[in-house]
Design a protein around this nucleic acid. Structure first.
Length: 598
RNA sequence: UGCCCGAUAGUGUAAUGGUAGCACAAACGACUCUGACUCGUUUUGUCUAGGUUCGAGUCCUAGUCGGGCAGCCA
C-alpha cells in the first residue's frame, strides 16, 4: 500500500482520559472484551450532543475490537414511545455508517437476559449480536424480570425495604444538601414483611405512589443520592415495549447499573451531572455480590456548541410553538435536522472528535462545526452553477439562438477530475451581488466598463446598464471575449474576478432555502427566555436559477454551488425533476466581511 | 452557610515534575477560471497567593471564579 492510498480513516485515534483508562484496563486484561453502550431514553429525538456520546462509545469499541450496544433506557412508561425508538435507531445507524457499524451491538429479537451460572453463582446475562433481520436493539424494559429478581435479592440481604412514605414525606425526610435526612419510619421492617409487601406491590395491590422500594444506605450521607434512594415506584400504566405486565417500574439509578452489568458492559460513559450518582451505581452492584467483573461509570462534559439549543425540552418548545417546522427542521441541531440540512455524518463525527472529551464544561465555537462541514463537503460535494438572486445579462455579440458549449469541472479536488457541458447563451443570469454600479474599493466583480470572467466560459466586458422607469437595473449589456474561452488563443488572459452564471434559456427554477443560525446570541440557553433571541432571518426562501443538470438531484446528494456554498435536495419537499434545495453552509467569505462592505 | 467537580491564547484541547504545543477563529501574504480550497507568516495563554523542588501548567495548602447535587425523570 502506498502512502497515497492510505484511507482517511487512518487518522490517529483520539486520546482522552476515558480512553486512557480503557487502555489501562485492556493492558491488565480486566475485562474479556471492551463493551460500551449508548443508552438513550426513547422520549425525543437525538441531537448533536448525543453524537458526542455516540462517537465516544462507538469510538472506544472500534479502537479496542469491542462492541457498543444500543440500549433504550425505557424505565418510565409515562414518557416513552416507539416513535422515538425508530428514529433514534435510524439516527444511530446513519451516524456510524461506514465507521463503526461492525461494532453496533443488538440482541436476538424478543430475547431477555438468560439465567445462567457464572463462577458457581446464579446470574443473568444477555450477549450482543450483530444487527440483522432477526435482531433488535437492547431495551432496559426487557430486563424487568431480572431486575425484579435482583431487587428481591437486595431485600433478602436486608439492603432494601418497602417504604410507605408519600412523595411529599419522602422529600421532607431526605433533608437538604447541607442538612442530613431522617430515617423513614418503615426503614426497619423485617425482611419477611418487605418481601411480602414488595411482591404485593408487583401484584398490583396498591395504588400509584402508595409505596416504594428503597435502598437502605445512609440518610445522613453528604451525597443526597445515597439517602435511601428509591429503586421502584408503583405506576399502573402499560409500557410501550413491555406491555401491561408490570405496575412497578425501576428507577434510573437502579436499572442503569444493572442493565450495564447484564449486557457485560465494561465502561459506562455518561455526562457530568451523574457524578454524584456514581456512588449509588457502585453501591447497588457491590451490594448484590455479582460474579462477573463489574462495569464502572465514567463522566465527561456535554457538548455545547454556540448558537445552538440542545435540550430536548427546549427543542420541543421550538417545535410546539412553531418556531421551526418540526423535529427534523434543518435549523435544529437534531440528527434528523442536520441530516436534512445536508451535513454528512462524517462531518458530525469529525467535529465531535475534534472537540475532545474532558470534564470541563465548555462552549464550543460553532465555527469549529462549520469548518468540519466545509472540510468534508469540499471533498464530497459535486460542483454546480446556480444563481440565487438573479439579474439578467446580455452578451450582445452572441446571436439569440447561439449556444456555446463549455466544459465545467465537477470535482476539482479529485486527482482525476471529470467535466460536464454547460451552455453559454446570449442571455444569462448572474448573481446580483456580483454587480455594482458604484463599486467599493477592491471590488473584483462586474462594474461599469470592467471585465470579469464568466466561470468556465469567457471574459466579458460591461458596456451598458439598462434601467426601468423607476431606475432599477433590469439588464446588463456586455461583450463576450470569445477568444478567452478555455482552449482558445487568449484563454490565459487574467482578470481579477470570476463570477458564476446560468443560461436564461437553459435553466431550471427551483426553491432554495437559505438557512442561518437559529439564534442571535452564542448562548441562547443562558438567556432568561431564548424565544426572545430567535433569529428572525434564520430562513430566507428564494427562487433560484439552476443549471439544468440539477433537475436530477436526489436527497442525499451533496453539491457545491460555486462561490455560494454547499446545498442538498430537501428530503421531504423535493419531487422528481423538481428538487428543493437546502443550503447546508455557505462558503467561507473573506470579502463580505471587509469593513468596506458595511 | 453541606458535599462533589472543574479552571492552559478569543474558543476548544494537548503537554512521564524538564523548551507550553495543536485546531478553530483573527490578521497579513502567496496562489487562484470559486474573494473557496491550498500554502506561508503573525498576534494572543497556564485564575490568584503561598509552599515543596535544581526545576511546577503538572505536586501540596489557602483563596477566587465557574459548574453540579435535595424527581416516585433520565
Amino acid at each position: 500500500m502506498t502512502a497515497e492510498s492510505v484511507p482517511p480513516t487512518a487518522a490517529p485515534a483520539p486520546t482522552d482520559f476515558i480512553r486512557t483508562i480503557v487502555a489501562a484496563h485492556v493492558a491488565e486484561k480486566r475485562y474479556s472484551q471492551i463493551v460500551t453502550r449508548f443508552p438513550p431514553e426513547p422520549n425525543g429525538y437525538l441531537h448533536i450532543g448525543h453524537a458526542k456520546s455516540i462517537c465516544l462509545n462507538f469510538g472506544i469499541a472500534r479502537e479496542n475490537n469491542g462492541r457498543c450496544n444500543l440500549r433504550f433506557d425505557d424505565t418510565n412508561p409515562a414518557k416513552e414511545d416507539v416513535e422515538f425508538v425508530d428514529s433514534i435507531t435510524a439516527d444511530v445507524k446513519w451516524l456510524i455508517a461506514g465507521w463503526a457499524d461492525h461494532c453496533l451491538g443488538f440482541k436476538p429479537k424478543g430475547t431477555h437476559p438468560a439465567k445462567v451460572t457464572s463462577s458457581g453463582q446464579p446470574d443473568y446475562y444477555l450477549a450482543a449480536v450483530n444487527p440483522g433481520p432477526d435482531s433488535e436493539p437492547f431495551f432496559a424494559s426487557d430486563y424487568f424480570d431480572a431486575l425484579y429478581d435482583y431487587a428481591l435479592e437486595l431485600v433478602r440481604r436486608g439492603k432494601a425495604y418497602v417504604c410507605d412514605l408519600s412523595p411529599k414525606e419522602t422529600e421532607a425526610y431526605r433533608g437538604a444538601p447541607d442538612k442530613p435526612g431522617r430515617n423513614s419510619p418503615f426503614r426497619h421492617r423485617s425482611i419477611a414483611e418487605n418481601l411480602d409487601l414488595f411482591q404485593r406491590m408487583r401484584a398490583g395491590e396498591f395504588p400509584d405512589g402508595a409505596r416504594t422500594l428503597r435502598a437502605k444506605i445512609d440518610m445522613a450521607s453528604p451525597n443526597v443520592w445515597l439517602r435511601d434512594p428509591l429503586l421502584y415506584r408503583i405506576r399502573h400504566v402499560p409500557h410501550y415495549h413491555a406491555g401491561d405486565k408490570w405496575c412497578v417500574y425501576p428507577l434510573y439509578d437502579y436499572a442503569h447499573c444493572l442493565s450495564d452489568y447484564l449486557e457485560g458492559i465494561s465502561h459506562s460513559a455518561c455526562s457530568l451531572e451523574f457524578v454524584p450518582h456514581r456512588a449509588l451505581y457502585d453501591w447497588i452492584l457491590e451490594a448484590l455480590d455479582l460474579p462477573r467483573p463489574l462495569p464502572r461509570q465514567y463522566e465527561f462534559a456535554k457538548l455545547v456548541p454556540s448558537y445552538m439549543l440542545l435540550s430536548k425540552r427546549n427543542i420541543l418548545r421550538l417545535v410546539q410553538e412553531k418556531v421551526v417546522a418540526g423535529w427534523d427542521d434543518p435549523r435544529l441541531p437534531t440528527i434528523s435536522g442536520l441530516r436534512r440540512r445536508g451535513i454528512p455524518a462524517s462531518a458530525i463525527r469529525c467535529f465531535v472528535i475534534s472537540v475532545g472529551v474532558t470534564t470541563f464544561n465548555s462552549v464550543t465555537d460553532i465555527a469549529v462545526f462549520e469548518h468540519a462541514i466545509r472540510d468534508e463537503l469540499n471533498t464530497l460535494a459535486v460542483r454546480r452553477l446556480a444563481v440565487l438572486k438573479p439579474i439578467k445579462l446580455v452578451l450582445t455579440n452572441l446571436t439569440p439562438g447561439e449556444v456555446i458549449e463549455c466544459n465545467a469541472t465537477n470535482d476539482p479536488q479529485s486527482e482525476t477530475p471529470s467535466t460536464r457541458k454547460i451552455a453559454l447563451t446570449r442571455e444569462v443570469f448572474i448573481e446580483s451581488d456580483d454587480f455594482a454600479e458604484f463599486p467599493p474599493s477592491k471590488y473584483f466583480r462586474l462594474k461599469p466598463g470592467g471585465e470579469v470572467r464568466l466561470k468556465y466560459a469567457c471574459i466579458i466586458k460591461l458596456d451598458e446598464i439598462v434601467k426601468d422607469a423607476a431606475g432599477a437595473v433590469t439588464e446588463l449589456r456586455c461583450t463576450a471575449q470569445l477568444d478567452t474561452r478555455s482552449g482558445q488563443s487568449n484563454a490565459d488572459k487574467k482578470v481579477k474576478g470570476t463570477i458564476h452564471w446560468v443560461s436564461v434559456t437553459r435553466c431550471l427554477d427551483a426553491e432554495v432555502r437559505l438557512y442561518d443560525r437559529l439564534f442571535t446570541v452564542p448562548e441562547p440557553g443562558a438567556e432568561e427566555d431564548f424565544m426572545k433571541v430567535v433569529n428572525p432571518h434564520s430562513l430566507d426562501v428564494v427562487t433560484a436559477k439552476l443549471e439544468t443538470s440539477l433537475a436530477g438531484a436526489q436527497p442525499g446528494d451533496y453539491y457545491q454551488f460555486e462561490r455560494l456554498g454547499y446545498f442538498t435536495p430537501d428530503a421531504k419537499d423535493s419531487t422528481p425533476g423538481q428538487p428543493v434545495f437546502n443550503r447546508t453552509v455557505s462558503l467561507k467569505d473573506t470579502w463580505t466581511k471587509l469593513p468596506a462592505q458595511s
